[in-house]
Design a protein around this nucleic acid. Structure first.
Lengths: 335, 335
DNA sequence: ATGAAAGCGCTAACAC
DNA sequence: GTGTTAGCGCTTTCAT
């Protein structure tokens, strides 16, 4: 294999300990020794072996970020934010995809116990709080998003009910009254959908509008094409709306297509809002008015809390909210 | 820390070796012993420690997949394909983002030498062939895509010139004659842009059309919004086209916006093609005619070749092509 | 079929 | 300031 610490030590005529000290920038090393060792390192092209170090120290410098799929733009953008936040604190990020299945989520939790990572940032979609909390590993977990979160765990999210309320109010301020909701699950609702629907409903009721179950357009799958069909079949069944709040930007993109295909003008006939502020929401035509979570803030707090846990902090679960903002764009412009 | 092999051995009243044999499904273990050990494993909740194993075996079971950014939909979809292919062969995939910078790419190559992964799938964008080939580590590398690829390395890609030729021919078959190209770099071209432009040019010339440099719409950045500006400013400068071949689907999405904003109907006024067949290309309105690489085939071959290299194969670099297909959709429908 | 013991590459007491 | 040495958890000859 490659060059070992031992080899460098011999080459420089010092002990392994000294080389190790140099490699890890330990301060109490004489300048002369340091130089000599560094030269040996360069000459031999020595690279420390992470596995050996891990075994000796008990830590890997790796955090896992687990979510359903990296092909969901929001998660891809979340990855960048988390990588940046973690990188700034000396950690690298290992992406784990769960496929949004129970088995996938369980596999992530289980494999985390194999010592590959020092901590996990987990955005659950299927696992229940009780099941997550059964995880009694020594690897700390911080929950991302509004999914199940056992009380003892830290969690970071935005206030989904409030943001959904704001988005719906925006649609109401445009004079829209027949406001639908699109993109939620057809059967049992995810926590995400529950909260966003709650904010939507609250805003309508405050305006004296009784939410109409007929104006709910579920998606067979949580994706853009799912929304194309969900919204499309509702429209074909004769449902008429003048506003549409979508569970996420992907659903909004699908809704845009379903509406356009049928000749509805956006925003004139139907004003549409999305959620997540993914990059493409700015490029769509029309661009999409969207709830924009403070992704950097979310990532930063999540990583900070995780590192505190890894450091031994064992206080009660902290549930923190980060900011969000309604970005008003063409699909539902200012009044 | 957690439960060790040692603990299981004591609990079951056998040696570590025997437990190890059971864990790794070694066949020569008596049924009785196996059962007893398995029970001890279950009772204690033992999970093998990957790091210890790695140190002892010299392998991690991890492959790195390196590309510029996971927020590029094509790379996200590539990740899925690679994960699936690798998973089937007993490997997990570690995603490495290079940010499309030289430092980022160098960091990936360098850190690979720290023993974290057994092999690397690398889609270069900046590093030159000579620099890549200077990598004399013991970690095998397989190159993905049409970027720089030193001869001694294996590489998998689709025939970019041929695919670009096909896409342009499709536009020509629609009767379009003023066909532009959008989304390439404004300055020095990437290998990707070079090849796609070559196929585009070839098709035009074969049709007796002299490629017009004025119909080239570079993007300040390789992204959808880059294309919005690139195509937009060309249009505003008075360039008129009836067909547009885009370097990738993101550029096509940007072009769609730039054209629509200015009142051009797609495909009637301008027929547009993309590249990569990302999920959203099917959902756009109009949906995007796109060059669809056989992603699964590409991922499978790449992983297979990498594993062969990891297994010690040291033949000359194999440069393989996988299939592609022009998916005809609304933005440039069949004639 | 199972056990004993020697490492894999590195770190961390503990000496000096 | 630097060297010695004992592990970290696991695999793996080599015996038995």
């Amino acid at each position: 294999m490659g060059v070992r610490l031992q080899d460098v030590a011999e080459h420089a005529g010092v002990s392994m300990k000294t080389v190790s000290n140099v490699v890890r920038n330990y301060e109490h090393v004489s300048v002369a020794t340091r130089e000599r060792v560094q030269q040996a390192i360069d000459e031999l092209g020595y690279r420390p072996n992470m596995m050996g170090r891990r075994l000796a120290t008990g830590r890997t410098g790796l955090l896992a970020l687990a979510f359903s799929s990296v092909t969901v733009p929001y998660f891809a953008e979340l990855s960048r934010a988390v990588s940046a936040a973690a990188g700034g604190l000396g950690y690298r990020v290992l992406l784990e995809e769960t496929d949004g299945t129970l088995e996938g989520e369980r596999a992530v939790i289980t494999s985390s116990e194999s010592g590959m990572v020092d901590g996990i940032l987990f955005q659950p979609s299927m696992m229940s709080s009780v099941e997550i909390s059964r995880h009694r590993g020594d690897v700390p977990i911080v929950i991302l998003g509004e999914g199940a979160a056992p009380l003892p765990f830290d969690r970071v999210m935005i206030d989904n009910v409030a943001a959904a309320y704001d988005a719906t109010r925006h649609l109401l301020s445009l004079g829209r009254r027949r406001i639908g909701f699109a993109g939620h699950e057809p059967g049992e609702l995810s926590a995400t959908s529950v909260q966003r629907l709650a904010g939507y409903q609250q805003a309508l009721e405050e305006h004296g509008i009784r939410p109409d179950p007929g104006m709910l357009f579920p998606s067979a799958e949580i994706s853009a094409s799912g929304a194309v069909h969900g919204v499309g079949s509702g429209l074909d069944a004769g449902v008429r709306i003048d506003g549409l709040m979508c569970r996420d930007d992907l659903a909004a993109i699908g809704a845009l297509r379903a509406l356009s295909e049928r000749g509805f003008a956006i925003p004139d006939d139907v004003a549409v809002t999305g959620w997540d502020n993914i990059e493409l929401s700015r490029v769509m035509y029309p661009s999409i008015t969207s709830v924009a979570p403070d992704l950097d803030g979310l990532a930063r707090r999540a990583v900070e809390m995780l590192i505190e846990r890894m450091g031994g902090y064992s206080g009660i679960g902290r549930h923190e909210l980060v900011d969000y903002e309604l970005l008003v764009r063409e699909s539902a412009p200012a009044a």
